[in-house]
Design a protein around this nucleic acid. Structure first.
Lengths: 296, 296
DNA sequence: TTTCGTTACGTTAGTCGTAAAGATT
DNA sequence: AATCTTTACGACTAACGTAACGAAA
């Protein structure tokens, strides 16, 4: 027994001595920390913390346990990190994915620069669908993904921003907006916004496809779609609109879709993502190479 | 990352070098070991084992990882055990439960003997319903339960057998079997067998309330009930029959229920149960005391 | 043909967040 | 009254077993 999440909750709480900060640090709710610690104490049969709503302190048993657990757990995480570093290191294969086909171009250049620095580490480049990004990173299916940010997901690190571009609205060629030079966020209240798949967390979806205009007016929802081709096909068929980055104008020109700048929308930002505990030397090196490639 | 079950699967497989034995040792299916290791290797990006259907060997990376993880994990488990021992030890409270009221008598005597050996460790005795035994042990709500065995549940240890007694069939006072000196297992095919709650695992329920006679004839099922009082009430109301230990004849005599020995049924055996990783000094001491109390 | 590891799939335990309640200063 | 922890509850992830499959001797 003694699950990983219990161990980490105990160690973090013993250091923070505050449920709220512990929860924040571990990116979970305070309720979860409370219940995790309570269950652990029941199982061990010993109170590990004295707490009131004002003060949290370790008991002697908690102090002793912490003194043993902290170094042992550090040793385990260090060993795992070392295994990852050497295994996927200079002789392994770095798995890199991109979410939107055109942005993949940047990664090809990055891979060339990367190869000069770590010639023995191969790079494999593939496309990921939006809903695959999180499970693929979590399961180690890929090491790095180039995706839009912000990407507020626990356990996933956002690397340096590589590209910033204007945000355009993809609309059907025959749509009234298609003839305008620009639109505004407020205009979205009068069109249907296509949706990303429900597997994506709320924070990510809201950033890509807002549900309200800046003044709070709801934006109607259209159908959901899993891939960019599906989305653009739906746009072309007049089923709704979808915000995209400016590069699609060049890479995804289609007769049935027009792209209109959204005057007051925040820019589209692209960055590399990786598993927080998967930050190996090749990952860091690839991130450096990608920054160089983006600056060219 | 690196969950407890992954860590233990890795360590066990590195020692056994055999998926089947590893699964058996950890009390899970071989399929689970295979998938757990595969996922771990994907996340680390390194093969940890070379395997064919004939031979399993560690890779160099697996060997190195094992050398670090084994001592660190041992240190963690030892620290947890030490915390449990001292916390619930000589100055704590041992939580003991029994499933069937009359068998609780034995525990009262055991608690007296226990107190002579560990005078500073209090004993609290309570009754548990059949469906509570597993969650109560798992969550540390109780440390020891006196229950019928066999009790084939992962993570729960069966201690020494304390009592063996004849198995009787509880039948309604007016039932034809009530006038017989004995019945046989084959006779069960012609009555409704009351059922224990579905939360109980298959192995435990089948032992208490068989679904077939020895020659494979199905035994009809009656309603399920959660407590012994409910069960006996249903028996008295003619809703079905239920196998019990001989002690109920003395402790649960009721006008509406008769108890008839089942000539060819295995004896009812009682033993202490505890969480496999909750075997603290007080637990071992209480088990010794219970053996002495049973021998009186 | 037997033994052993892997893949596929449906089930369920247990972790999760939200929200409301309770406690302490 | 404000701040912090605990309890309650419904949702969903992911670990689980069964069973069918595939590979090696």
């Amino acid at each position: 027994m003694l699950e990983r999440h219990e161990l980490e909750a105990f160690l973090a709480l013993a250091e923070e001595l505050h449920f709220g900060r512990t929860a924040e640090r571990l990116r979970v709710s305070t309720a979860r920390i409370s219940q995790t610690i309570a269950k652990l104490e029941r199982r061990l049969g010993v109170p590990l913390f004295e707490r009131s709503s004002r003060r949290v302190r370790t008991t002697p048993a908690g102090r002793d346990l912490y003194a043993e657990l902290r170094p042992a757990w550090d040793r385990i995480t260090a060993a795992v990190r070392h295994t990852m570093d050497t295994g996927r290191g200079r002789a392994g294969t770095l798995e890199v994915a991109f979410v939107d086909a055109p942005t993949g171009q940047l990664l090809v250049r990055a891979a060339e620069l990367f190869r000069e620095r770590l010639p023995d580490c191969a790079v494999r480049l593939r496309e990921a669908q939006p809903a695959q990004v999180i499970p693929w990173l979590r399961e180690g299916e890929v090491d790095i993904v180039l995706d839009m940010v912000p990407f507020p997901v626990a356990g996933i690190t956002t690397g340096p921003e590589l590209v910033t571009e204007a945000r355009l609205l993809a609309v059907a060629a025959g749509h009234p907006y298609a003839r305008r030079a620009t639109v505004e966020l407020a205009d979205l209240a009068r069109v249907d916004m296509l949706r990303l798949p429900p597997e994506l967390p709320e924070g990510v979806r809201e950033n890509r496809t807002p549900t309200t205009t800046p003044d709070g007016t709801p934006i109607p929802s259209g159908p959901a779609a899993a891939t960019y081709n599906e989305l653009l096909t739906l746009v072309g068929a007049g089923r709704g609109v979808f915000p995209v980055g400016a590069h699609v104008r060049r890479y995804n020109a289609r007769p049935d879709v027009e792209y209109v700048p959204i005057r007051d929308a925040p820019a589209v930002r692209w960055a590399l993502l990786w598993r927080a505990d998967g930050e190996t030397e090749p990952v860091r090196e690839f991130a450096r190479a990608a920054v160089l490639a983006a600056g060219e």
